[in-house]
Nucleic acid binder design. Structure first.
Length: 222
DNA sequence: AACATGGTCAACCGCTAGTTA
DNA sequence: ATAACTAGCGGTTGACCATGT
């Protein structure tokens, strides 16, 4: 499979965007949309590659972008989701309307990672002491009203996670479903307790086991 | 005032998955 | 089936700015 050539042709501009370029790109997309990023710069009259245009639009020019500092609630959501999803920035961004994966990634590396390093046990102890708090805060849905019974099996949990995190894209859930099925088939191999009875305990078990066998878990998520 | 250092964030790079011919 | 291509993702870089010495 050949690698797509990008920005290799001489004459294409790189580096920071000027207000004029922003204006041209915004006007073009408002008028014609962005069905084909590769063709767009030529059609719009920009000396940029399609990739650069796409990034500029998604991370900066899109009208629904929320500017300004992250709220404590947003930061908490990022921390919680990162515990579950790892570095799946686009999946985390899907849970935070108006925030981009790039922005979340930057915030994580510049602020949140350090904060967690200072207090490494905060999240796990929060889960352990008050397991329902994480789920209800991050999903804005009270645990009691989740579409799960306290006796839900892991497959039921898996099937209902799309309702709990509706904005996360479909591909993630198909991956997750596959992994969860494998887990259910061989609980003992991964060291999970098959008597785990509900969502909170399921995640708690998973986090605790991740602490002891992170390699196995990383393999599962990769 | 001048320089060093560290933090922030926009943008780029390289890879993969999905689509099309 | 497979080669060519595009879109999207996560990691990394580098310019800029603030702060410390």
């Amino acid at each position: 499979m050949g690698r797509a050539p990008c920005c290799e042709k001489m004459g294409l501009k790189k580096g920071p965007w000027t207000p004029e370029e922003d204006q041209i790109l915004t006007n073009y997309i408002r008028k014609y949309g962005h069905a084909n990023w590769r063709a767009l710069p030529k059609l719009a009259g920009l000396l940029r590659c399609g990739k650069s245009c796409r990034l500029r639009w998604i991370n900066y020019l899109r009208p629904d972008i929320k500017r300004g500092n992250f709220t404590p609630e947003e930061e908490e959501t990022i921390i919680n989701l990162h515990q579950i999803l790892g570095n799946r920035w686009s999946a985390i961004a899907a849970k935070l309307p108006g925030r981009t994966d790039n922005e979340i990634k930057n915030v994580w590396h510049t602020h949140l990672k350090k904060r967690l390093k200072q207090k490494p046990n905060t999240i796990i102890s929060q889960i352990k002491n008050e397991p329902s708090s994480l789920t209800s805060k991050s999903s804005e849905t009270p645990t009691s009203s989740l579409p799960l019974s306290p006796q839900a099996s892991s497959s039921e949990i898996t099937n209902n996670m799309e309702d709990i995190f509706p904005e996360i894209d479909q591909s993630f859930w198909s991956d997750f479903s596959e992994i969860s099925n494998e887990l259910e088939q061989d609980y003992s191999y991964y060291g999970l307790d098959s008597s785990v009875s509900g969502l909170d305990e399921f995640w708690y078990e998973l986090f605790i086991r991740a602490g002891n066998g992170q390699d196995q878990l990383q393999q599962l998520w990769s």
